[in-house]
Every structure is written in structure tokens, then in C-alpha cells.
């Protein structure tokens, strides 16, 4: 039974292999090119999981430094991007835990900016740029989707982000999160259903 979704099945080797080899032997330029290639993707994964821009930036930086530090232990069993994503997921989880324990102790203030998935938002958001109605509608729709994703439990949010936003294969997700492929499938299914119900509530219909 072949249930694997092999998006990169056509790629026999890791496209980053040479850069990784060079970086491991001390070539910082090679590592910099890895940073340039992957930082946007890692930042977006971190942002969708933590829901905070600053936290996501910090997680991304820490992930690359951690990757550099542990390049020696990366044996090429997985692709570099998969290995790096696993680091980002772990750091994002840790950040979420810290954040949740901190928020648990903080009193709410009217002056405190609201934390939204896109970052911080003040109570009275300024109209920073002239936007058309379409754009506003589009932004509203995107914000609703982001809010619905943010409402998911972290374990469901992670798989949804990795599969539907980053288009990793079930196999890759299974390797990154160290869970069985069946678990990945069921989590993705439940996450999609939850977002669907959330959006239907927000918009009335899909």
C-alpha cells in the first residue's frame, strides 16, 4: 500500500548537499547561502506556529545558529530543509510554552497591544495605507483563516502548516515530528475539518 505523498520524489539528492558539506568544513559563505535560501520559509513556519512576528524572528535566528552548531551531527539522512524545519518546530514549541506561562501571569491592560497571528495590533489600528475595498475584504479573509489556524491546538497547527502551507510530504512530516504517518494523516484531517468549521462560522458559508 503506497500512501506516501512524495512531493520531492523526483529529487534523488538534497539540493543543499554541497553547501552543507562546504559549511561543515568551515566555509561560512556556503552557510550564508543556506541562510539566504531557507530563512523566509523558516520564518513563516515559525510565525504560523508561534503567532508572533518577533518571536518568529528570534526562533529563526536561533534555529540557524543551532543548525550551524550541530552541522556535524547532520548526516544527510533527511534533506537539510527538513532537518532545519524540525529545529524551527522545536524552538517554536519551546517559545510557545514560555509565552503561555508568561501570559498566564500577566494582567490584561487596555494599553497592551493585542497579540494576533500577524504580530501586534493596537486597539485602535491606524489606517496606514489607503486600501481598496477588495484589499480590505481579502485581508479580512486572510485574517480569518490565520485566526482559525491560530485557534488550533499546537499539535494540529504544526501539521496543517507543514502540509498545507509548506507542502511537506506526509513522510517528511512524520520524520520531522517523529510521529507515525497514520497519526500525521489523522491530525491533518482533523485540523482541516476544524479550520473548515471555524471559517463557516466566520463567513456563514465557504
Amino acid at each position: 500500500m503506497s500512501t506516501r505523498v512524495e512531493r520531492d520524489a523526483g529529487l534523488p539528492t538534497d539540493p543543499d548537499q554541497d553547501r552543507v558539506t562546504a559549511a561543515r568544513s568551515g566555509d561560512l559563505t556556503a552557510f550564508e547561502s543556506l541562510v539566504n535560501r531557507h530563512q523566509k520559509r523558516m520564518l513563516n513556519i515559525a510565525l504560523r506556529i508561534t503567532g508572533d512576528y518577533d518571536d518568529a524572528c528570534e526562533v529563526t535566528q536561533d534555529a540557524f545558529v543551532s543548525a550551524y552548531r550541530n552541522l556535524g551531527s547532520f548526516r544527510g539522512g533527511a534533506k537539510f530543509s527538513t532537518w532545519l524545519t524540525a529545529i524551527v518546530i522545536n524552538l517554536s514549541r519551546n517559545r510557545l510554552k514560555q509565552l503561555n506561562s508568561r501570559r498566564g501571569h500577566e494582567a490584561y491592560s487596555l494599553d497592551t497591544p493585542l497579540r494576533t497571528p500577524e504580530g501586534e495590533m493596537t486597539i485602535d489600528p491606524p489606517a496606514r495605507e489607503p486600501s481598496t475595498l477588495d484589499r480590505l475584504v481579502q485581508q479580512d479573509r486572510q485574517k480569518a483563516v490565520q485566526d482559525c489556524i491560530a485557534l488550533l491546538d499546537p499539535e494540529f497547527r504544526e501539521v496543517l502548516v507543514l502540509r498545507d502551507l509548506q507542502e511537506f510530504s506526509y513522510d517528511e512530516i512524520s520524520g520531522m515530528l517523529k510521529i507515525k504517518e497514520g497519526t500525521v494523516k489523522s491530525r491533518i484531517s482533523r485540523a482541516r475539518e476544524a479550520v473548515k468549521e471555524c471559517l463557516k462560522k466566520a463567513w456563514g458559508q465557504l
Binding site: L28, F31, E32, V35, N36, Q39, K40, R41, L43, N44, L47, R48, Y53, C57, T60, Q61, F64, V65, Y68, R141, Q142, V145, Q146, I149, L160, D164, L165, R192, E193, V195, K196, L199, K200, L206
Partner: peptide, 29 residues
């Protein structure tokens, strides 16, 4: 509905990484 939901999720725009990001990472590295 499930297909539309996935489409909506995939439509979320990716943000660009800040210009200072590479420099900051490489300084630490």
C-alpha cells in the same frame, strides 16, 4: 468544503524575512 478550506489556507501570503536577518544570523554564526 474541505478543498476550499485548503485553498484558503494556501492563499495566506508569506511574509518576507527582514533585511537584517541574514546579517544578524551570520554575526552569531
Amino acid at each position: 468544503e474541505l478543498r476550499r478550506t485548503i485553498e484558503q489556507v494556501q492563499e495566506i501570503e508569506e511574509i518576507e524575512s527582514p533585511a537584517w536577518m541574514t546579517g544578524k544570523i551570520m554575526a552569531k554564526v
